[in-house]
Design a protein around this nucleic acid. Structure first.
Lengths: 192, 192
DNA sequence: ACCTGAACACCGTTCAAGT
DNA sequence: ACCTGAACACCGTTCAAGT
C-alpha cells in the first residue's frame, strides 16, 4: 500500500478479504493488516467498531462480488442450460473462489461468519433451483438437483484440498468434475 | 472433571477434542480447558510442549477413533456392498462426526491441522477405493467412485450446515442423501 | 511426577492528543 | 476527518517454587 494516503473503510475491507483468501478468517489480524496498509492499528477503530465488524464487511464484499454480481450477470442468459454451464465454468475454472467458499462454509457456527454464509448459500441454491425449473424440472426435482449441485461444488474443493496432490482431483478443472457437472445439466434427473 | 486427580496427556487431548467438536480448532483455549479440568493453565505445559502439540494430539485421537478403528471394524465385512452400506450408515447416521470432519477439512492449510487431515482423507479414500474394486470396478472407475463418494460426504455436511434449517437437507439422514449413497453402492458407474 | 502462581509477550481495544 | 502512541485486558508461554 502506498503511504501518505487516507484510508477508506473499503480499503480495510479489501485487505481483510485478501487475508481471508490467503489464510482464512483467523488470518485477519489487526496488527498485520495495519502494517500492510502502512498505518497503526488504532486506525482501524476509526473506520470500524472492532475486528468483528471488519470481518463482516470483508465477507459482505465477498458476498457481493462472488455471489450477487455473478448471479446478476448469469441471469442475463436466457437459455437455462447455457446459464448453468456458464456458472459451472466460472465455478471450477477459478481456483481462487472454491477454497475460500469451502473454508467459510465450514464456519457457519461462528456468529460473525454464519449470517453471511447462510445468505450466500440460500442465494446460490435459489439460483440453481430456478435454473433447474427453467430447464423443465418439477419443484421437488429442481430443489433436490440444486442442493446436490451446491454440495457437490463445496465437497469437491474440500476433498481436493485434503487430497492435496491427488492426480484425479488436482488441477483447476479435473475431468471427473467436468463429467459430473455436465451430467447435472444434460440429465439432472439421473443424479437422484 | 472431578478435582484432586492427577491428569494424563490423554485427559487434555480428550478435552481438546471435545472443544474442537463444539466450536472448531479455535475453540481450543488453554485457559478454558484448564478451567474445565480444574487445574491452572501451567499444567498443560507439563504434558505438552504448547497449544499446537495439544491440538495435534486431539486430532490424532480423532483420526484413531473416527477413521482407523472404524475402517478396521468395517474391513471385517467380507461383502463389499454390505461393507459400503455399513460405512454410509455410520457416516450419515452420526450427526456428530460430519460437521467436525468438514470443519477440519476446511483447514488443511493450517500447518497443525493439515497433516492429520491429509492422512485421514487418504485413508478413507483408499478404503472406499478398495471396496469399489472388490465390487468389481476397474482401477480408474474405482478411483473416481471413491473420490466422488468422499467429496459427496463432505459436501453434504457443509451444505447442510450452511442451509441450516432446510427441509431437504435437514435431519440426520435426509432422503436425497440415502438415495444418492444407495446409488453409489448399487450402480456406482452411473455417477460418472 | 505433576501442579501453582507470578511474570512476560502478543495482540485486540480504548482514548486523549496530534495534524 | 483520520491517525498516532501510550495504556490496558486477555491469553499463550515460561519457569522457579511447591507438594
Amino acid at each position: 500500500m502506498s503511504p501518505d494516503k487516507k484510508l477508506s473503510p473499503d480499503d480495510w475491507a479489501r485487505a481483510a478479504l485478501d487475508a481471508v483468501a490467503a489464510g482464512g478468517v483467523e488470518a485477519v489480524s489487526v496488527e498485520g493488516l495495519a502494517r500492510s496498509l502502512c498505518v497503526t492499528k488504532g486506525s482501524l477503530y476509526w473506520h470500524y467498531a472492532d475486528r468483528s465488524a471488519l470481518i463482516t464487511a470483508a465477507l459482505e464484499l465477498w458476498e457481493r462480488i462472488g455471489t450477487i454480481e455473478i448471479i446478476e450477470r448469469l441471469d442475463a442468459i436466457e437459455d437455462p442450460a447455457a446459464r448453468l454451464r456458464a456458472l459451472f465454468e466460472l465455478s471450477i475454472g477459478d481456483a481462487r473462489n472454491g477454497p475460500v467458499d469451502s473454508a467459510l462454509a465450514a464456519r457457519v457456527d461462528d456468529p460473525v461468519v454464519g449470517p453471511v454464509v447462510e445468505r450466500v448459500a440460500r442465494r446460490r441454491v435459489e439460483f440453481l433451483e430456478r435454473a433447474y425449473r427453467d430447464l423443465g424440472l418439477g419443484p421437488a426435482a429442481a430443489a433436490a438437483s440444486a442442493r446436490i449441485a451446491y454440495s457437490t461444488y463445496l465437497g469437491h474443493f474440500q476433498a481436493a484440498q485434503a487430497l492435496r496432490d491427488d492426480p484425479l482431483l488436482g488441477g483447476p478443472a479435473p475431468r471427473y468434475m467436468r463429467r459430473l457437472l455436465h451430467a447435472m445439466v444434460e440429465s439432472p434427473r439421473s443424479a437422484h
